[in-house]
């Protein structure tokens, strides 16, 4: 037994034999509570100090003009919030982020489920393909962004291969750049969805698929009437994960376009971090952070609630 246990071992050992005196019982209980508190305190302190309190501080800073240096910051009321409503950069970033999230969520889920169906059978080749679609996850967004920027950027690999007269403005034309950003984001994240949908497909019982086959269902009908409804919880997880991930998209854009051309591909988080650190307007940045935080929490709740109905349909 470890040395630390001897302290408790001595008093508790006799108590298991005879009837416990009430005093000892409360003392044991108190000791139990003390151990509980000692065990729970470290993460509680961390989460309180570096998540809960900062959320409060973000709200506080959002009412100030803090620039990162002056202390204490000056309170300026709702001015940051009225400013961000009218700020064209914020509006553009919000619109772009919503666009990326909407298209990305649909594309990642359609591709994710489609490729999962394609790779569903347990063969060696499918195992290799599964590894292949998932590798972007371990490489990370910054490095993937740089890689794609050297492929699609001006003078990049594709440009060079097409020759000077046929070059395509993947990252230099605003509309093209937005489309490119969306495609690269989907490319780098749909592998996670493939893997999750594959895991979901494993949970569809074979006898159900067998029954559908015996009833003469075509593969198409089996998918829409049997597999997809049974995947409802998996769909929820995938949609929530992609939405939360895309609402905070930043690193990939930073490396791929650096927000360009002319700020056209700056996402919401990009705007928060770059404009508030480059312009040392951390109070203004905090206001945008608060808006994003509230939005993400609301969207998560709404999606989960909306999906509950189709999930219950499975259970019924």
């Amino acid at each position: 037994m470890p040395a630390s246990s001897t302290a408790t071992a001595v008093p508790t050992a006799p108590r298991t034999v005879g009837p416990r005196p009430p005093l000892g019982r409360t003392r044991a209980r108190r000791r139990e509570t003390a151990a509980d508190i000692a065990m729970m305190a470290p993460p509680l302190i961390l989460v309180a100090g570096l998540i809960i309190v900062p959320i409060g501080i973000a709200v506080y800073l959002s009412f100030t003009d803090w620039n990162g240096f002056t202390s204490p910051p000056h309170t300026i009321g709702f001015r940051n919030y009225t400013r961000l409503i009218h700020d064209p950069a914020v509006k553009h970033a919000a619109f772009l982020t919503l666009l990326i999230t909407a298209i990305g969520t649909i594309a990642c889920n359609v591709l994710g489920l489609g490729v999962a169906l394609l790779l569903n059978r347990n063969t060696r080749i499918n195992a290799i393909l599964r590894v292949l679609v998932f590798y972007p996850y371990v490489v990370g967004a910054v490095i993937l962004g740089f890689l794609w920027s050297s492929i699609l950027g001006t003078n990049g690999a594709v440009d060079a291969a097409l020759g000077a007269h046929h070059s395509l403005p993947f990252l230099s034309d605003p509309k093209w750049a937005i489309a490119t950003v969306v495609c690269v984001i989907v490319w780098s994240s749909f592998g996670v969805n493939v893997v999750l949908y594959l895991a979901g497909l494993q949970t569809v019982p074979d006898n159900v698929l067998e029954a559908a086959k015996i009833d003469g269902a075509s593969p198409w009908q089996t998918f829409w009437r049997v597999k997809l409804p049974m995947l409802a919880p998996t769909v929820t997880v995938n949609v929530v994960l992609v939405v939360i991930g895309l609402l905070r998209v930043y690193e990939l854009i930073l490396a791929l376009t650096a927000g360009g051309p002319a700020g056209e591909t700056q996402s919401f988080v990009y705007n928060i971090l770059t404009s508030s650190f480059d312009n040392t307007q951390l109070g203004y940045g905090a206001a945008q952070s608060v808006v994003l935080m509230v939005f993400i929490v609301v969207v998560t709740i709404v999606i989960t609630a909306a999906r509950r109905r189709s999930e219950q349909a499975v259970a019924a």
């Binding site: 973000a58 608060v290 993400i296």
Partner: peptide, 20 residues
């Protein structure tokens, strides 16, 4: 309390965490 951070993206906390 410990689960509270589940839906809060780290990037939005950067500014106040710098403050703390």
């Amino acid at each position: 309390v410990l689960l509270a951070g589940l839906f809060i993206p780290g990037q939005t906390l950067v500014i106040p965490v710098i403050y703390v």
